[in-house]
Nucleic acid binder design. Structure first.
Ligand SMILES: [Mn+2]
Ligand SMILES: [Mn+2]
Ligand SMILES: [Mn+2]
Ligand SMILES: [Mn+2]
Lengths: 140, 140
DNA sequence: GTCAAAATGGAGCCTTGGCTACATCTCTAA
DNA sequence: TTAGAGATGTAGCCAAGGCTCCATTTTGAC
């Protein structure tokens, strides 16, 4: 006996909602890791400028990162990632690249691939990531 | 001269934020169209059950659809789509199928493809959709 | 060294999208 | 015909994620 249609569908929507709720945190840790690596520090103003939001919004979200145990901040000295934050950043960065590479391999123009990946990346499950890897290996 | 890095990146994040803000409306019109076609009517309770949210949440979002000119509702008689709503539903349905088909073609298992597509679909640009079509035609 | 500009932080507002609790309407089965 | 069940709608709560405005701290130019 198959699961009722509405339960299957509700579970799919539920997964998408839960992915959406972590999407912003993922973007922040990825960006902070990038700034730390490339600029040596991650200041709220830089984070805000890269994201295209006000500095007040960036500061508020950073405090959500702190609550979530992903980051720390020393006042007027920038934002840092905890071990947990670093680990998440690493995973997110890898996933981001994989999504872009698959889009490119399918024939999506570079800038579209980069822009769309910024949203798509947050909704790609483990099983899908594995399929993406196999797909890219298969055409290497 | 290239655009500064932060402006390019800010524009990508901005696009993702704007896509996110319409994602829920897209899911609702797609689902309402589906219910109207398959069940003859779209009641708030059915919408809520399919989405996995409370009926109060569904009713509130339907009123956002009304404000956006996508739907109408007769109290105790269900929800209907405006022309604009129908048009959006059509586009969304087509896009949803295309995303699932591409994921399947790449080797993503069926249920993962369906679940991930529920989120991914909202972040796929026109250029990417066209690339998806070409990709599928090329391997037909 | 001073002081103005820039960065930082916080308060307070709005919308969205969840929820529960409760009131009212509709419809069906007895 | 009517009671009760189920559907619908309203009110009010919360967190997230935007924003502007303002106060304070730091930094850099002179
Ligand atoms: Mn992203
Ligand atoms: Mn990313
Ligand atoms: Mn969807
Ligand atoms: Mn869909």
């Amino acid at each position: 006996m198959a699961l009722p249609t509405e339960l299957i569908q509700a579970s799919r929507f539920g997964k998408a909602r839960s992915a959406q709720s972590t999407a912003l945190l993922e973007d922040y840790v990825e960006l902070i890791a990038d700034l730390l690596a490339n600029e040596g520090e991650a200041r709220p103003t830089d984070i805000a400028r890269r994201l295209g939001v006000s500095h007040a919004t960036a500061i508020k979200t950073v405090s959500r990162l702190k609550r979530a145990g992903l980051a720390t901040a020393r006042p007027y000295r920038g934002v840092f990632l905890t071990e947990k934050g670093e680990a998440l950043a690493q995973r997110v960065r890898t996933r981001h690249r994989l999504v872009v590479d698959v889009l490119r391999a399918i024939g999506v123009p570079l800038e579209s691939a980069e822009a769309d990946a910024e949203g798509i990346e947050h909704y790609v499950s483990e099983a899908t990531l594995q399929a993406f890897s196999r797909f890219l290996r298969g055409r290497a």
